[in-house]
């Protein structure tokens, strides 16, 4: 046997090959990214034309995931009932299972957007949650790109599910996979430098752990409508 390639990495491997093909098209002398911090500006090569993505013919670059719906009996009716009626209507149309926070008043402010590929809930805090903005989204779409090595997060949430815990300009962000789809929770404080709730990851992780399943369309057929 001369070469073995795990099949699970098939398309990742195929797509990963593409940048090698591009080396001379976009950047005649591509810099070593790991030494770019030593590259003085005056010596860098200004580029005029970028590459276009080169892909493998026939490969699906955008793919839908299998949604694993929880049983209807798992719906947390108490949490769902606290969401505004417009939000409940949108939840019933969601193509992926919707998760909302059990505790606090955020769920009472939820505005939910349900689209063919995703669902997103946005909540502004009031009362004791004043100054908090919470975003919860989930998508059943996965993008396959060239040059992306498999990377596994070291952290976990919600009963051991691998998770990325990131920050974006003071906004805490947690993403993980559950029910076969991808979830993202973002927590933003109106005054991040002064607000203890955004000083550490503790609050966003507590919210993530507290999320309850509140429903969805239970649609299993793929496809955009």
């Amino acid at each position: 046997m001369n070469r073995t390639l795990p099949f699970s990495a098939l398309w990742g491997t195929l797509l990963a090959a593409a940048p090698m093909m591009l080396a001379s098209s976009a950047c005649d002398a591509p810099p070593d990214p790991r030494s770019s911090d030593d590259s003085p500006g005056a010596e860098t090569t200004a580029q005029k034309q970028p590459a276009v993505n080169e892909r493998i013919g026939g490969a699906r670059a955008v793919e839908e995931l299998h949604v694993a719906w929880p049983e209807r009996s798992k719906i947390d009716a108490a949490v769902l009932s606290r969401a505004p009626s417009e939000a409940r209507d949108a939840i019933s149309k969601a193509v992926v299972p919707v998760l909302l926070p059990r505790a606090g008043v955020l769920v009472e402010q939820a505005r939910v957007v349900a689209k063919p590929a995703f669902v997103a809930a946005s909540m502004d805090g009031s009362a004791e949650e004043s100054g908090l903005h919470l975003s919860i989204s989930a998508t059943k779409i996965v993008h396959r790109h060239a040059g992306i090595d498999r990377v596994a997060p070291a952290r976990s949430v919600r009963a051991g599910r691998p998770a990325w815990v990131l920050q974006n300009e003071g906004i805490w962000s947690v993403s993980w996979e559950e029910n076969g789809v991808s979830y993202v929770v973002d927590l933003e404080c109106a005054r991040p430098s002064e607000d203890a709730r955004c000083a550490t990851e503790d609050r966003v992780l507590a919210i993530v752990e507290d999320l309850a399943f509140v429903g969805g369309s239970f649609e299993t057929r793929g496809g955009a409508k």
Partner: peptide, 24 residues
Amino acid sequence: SYNPPGTLVSGSGSGRFDETIYAP
């Protein structure tokens, strides 16, 4: 004109050389 992807200002860290156009 533009510097290649992944080329950061000197001393500001290590960039990612990535020629994928994620939002064509």
